[in-house]
């Protein structure tokens, strides 16, 4: 276990010595337009026939365990399913109002341009690669599951039943395949071009083309172009996306922006608090010492006053004693003189 530079800086920053997190947060708050030429995948719900081939393809290329119900069982489509530890992707069936035919929608990781999962992970287990794929590194994951809290699309799943090395499970955009020029498993398996692969720019143009070409079949909205700051997986549909269980109220703010402001405040606390608290302490201390000094002064003053008084008393006393003594002496002399004169009178 070695501390690399990044860890070290982060530790420093968080322990109040400098402003690294603030700077990093600032860097993150500039809107990231996505890596140029990163890949994208377009899902077209108008073309999707709900055959679950993409689920099979994904299961095979990723060596996932077989699902509880076999893939051939299309009955499961009726259940509302979510992504789980056995499936990186899932197709759900919806019955939008006023439509006789059902509409299908494929779920998997959307590979956000600025992923919430990556910004929330405290060991940085997620990486947004230049290919567009958001990949996860099991070897550092602590299993806190904060990424699952953070992901606005409810994508990451966890192998809760594993006591020894549980992990996050989520679509990798077939990263190992696409960097070698192969198609993602699900795209390859799709029989109806409901899934298309190319650069994100190409997919956006393709989406616009299809919308323009069949304005009756499509709504003019590419889901994922701006949602949560944009995603590499894009969706077009003939029915409003909320009918397909997709949240249209996510806004266009990328996830890291939700926290960067507050995070940037943290080093400020670390920098200002000691000064503030130290100041309060010094003030109180001074107040205390002042009070102490005043008390001391009062005591000495009282003491000197008392001393002076006592001295004056003593002086007065002495003076009086002196006077009395003198008087007594004078009296004695006087008496003696009188006695002497009366004696002389008798003798004569």
């Amino acid at each position: 276990m070695s501390i690399d530079r990044r860890t070290f800086l982060a530790l420093l920053g968080a322990s109040s010595l400098n402003l690294v997190p603030a700077l990093e947060a600032k860097g993150a708050s500039k809107h990231f337009e996505g890596y140029p030429d990163s890949y994208g995948i377009l899902f077209d719900s108008v073309r999707c026939i709900g055959c679950r081939r993409c689920e099979i393809g994904c299961n095979e290329v990723n060596d996932l365990p077989l699902p509880e119900e076999p893939f051939e069982d299309l009955g499961v489509l009726d259940k509302k399913r979510r992504l789980n530890e056995r499936a990186y992707t899932i197709v759900n069936k919806y019955h939008p109002e006023g439509r006789s035919a059902p509409v299908y929608r494929k779920l998997q990781c959307n590979h956000c341009l600025e992923p919430a999962c990556a910004s929330s992970c405290f060991v940085a287990a997620y990486t947004k690669t230049p290919s567009g794929a958001v990949i996860y590194d099991q070897s550092v994951c602590v299993g806190c599951r904060y990424c699952m809290i953070a992901c606005p699309f409810n994508v990451p799943a966890y192998t809760y039943a594993d006591p020894v090395s549980p992990r996050i499970m989520k679509c990798t955009m077939c990263y190992p395949r696409i960097i070698r020029g192969k198609l993602p498993g699900c795209v390859q398996a799709c029989p109806n071009e409901a899934l298309n692969f190319g650069t994100r720019e190409e997919m956006l143009s393709l989406a616009r083309e299809r919308i323009k070409g069949h304005p009756d079949s499509y709504l003019d909205h590419i889901y994922g172009e701006h949602e949560m700051g944009g995603t590499n997986w894009l969706y077009i549909s003939g029915v409003p996306f909320p009918e397909l269980g997709m949240n249209e109220n996510l806004g266009t703010t990328p996830a890291p922006k939700l926290t960067s402001g507050a995070l940037a405040a943290v080093p400020v606390i670390a920098a200002l608090w000691p000064v503030l608290l130290g100041g309060i302490y010094v003030m109180n201390k001074r107040r205390d010492t002042q009070a102490e000094q005043e008390k001391d002064q009062a005591v000495t003053r009282a003491r000197t006053e008392a001393d002076e008084k006592a001295e004056a008393k003593l002086k007065a006393f002495k003076k009086q004693a002196e006077q009395e003594k003198q008087e007594a002496v004078a009296k004695a002399v006087h008496e003696a003189e009188e006695k002497a004169s009366s004696q002389t009178d008798e003798e004569s």
Binding site: M1, A10, V20, P21, A124, Y146, P256, S260
Partner: peptide, 13 residues
């Protein structure tokens, strides 16, 4: 703290 830090996370804080 010792292997890899994720300072963009509140949980790290």
């Amino acid at each position: 703290f010792f292997v890899q830090a994720g300072p963009t996370s509140f949980l790290f804080e």
